[in-house]
Amino acid sequence: MIKYHPSDALLQAHVAGELPLSMSIAVSAHCEMCQVCQDKVHKMNAAFAQETLEAEACTETDLCEFNFDSMLEDIMSKPTAPQEVTPDAMVEVNGEQYKLPKAFRHQLQDSWSGIGKVNRMRFDTAENKARASLLHIGAGGEIPAHTHKGQEITLLLSGDFCDEYNEYHPGDFIVMSSEHEHSPRTNSGCLCYTVVDAPLYFTKGITKLLNPIGELIY
């Protein structure tokens, strides 16, 4: 059972296409795993589309007068496009294969880096501040007690992890901004997507939870 969801404000920003890539991936992947948010986004999308595109007649004179004939001709000279078959997002780490949500399709890099039970795959999102990565912790793995000051988002993709305060399940979308000390661990191993230093204003109003994964390993 998924217990932690993105806020409605965050879902709305996602639908509007206003979030940066790192955050868009997190919300999209959560929605693929969470029927509740999927339904919400479906409704928001239709409503936002309506608002944006269902227009009254053209009022901008410059636009009405613009001659679109050549653009129209150009477009209509194109043949129909074939139906695309999209590949699954598969990733392998420590001998385990995972099928990830679609948002990860073109993000996966070849290499993991890490020590011991902790492995990380950093994504190249070209964002200035936010750092996005996949994080794998092997069975029985533990992150030493630590604190964290920045905003951080964790989406648990597979497996389990818990800390002194909570137990998390696949699909849980966890926002952390606490400076509490804690030491998260996993029994059967887990795969997460994390965004650290996510811009603050995007996550305002979301339940504040404790940070499960330390800054040490980023």
Partner: peptide, 13 residues
């Protein structure tokens, strides 16, 4: 990446 993040209707798995 847009179509990965917001899949279009016609996407086939």
């Amino acid at each position: 990446f847009g179509d990965d993040i917001w899949p279009l209707f016609e996407d086939v798995e």
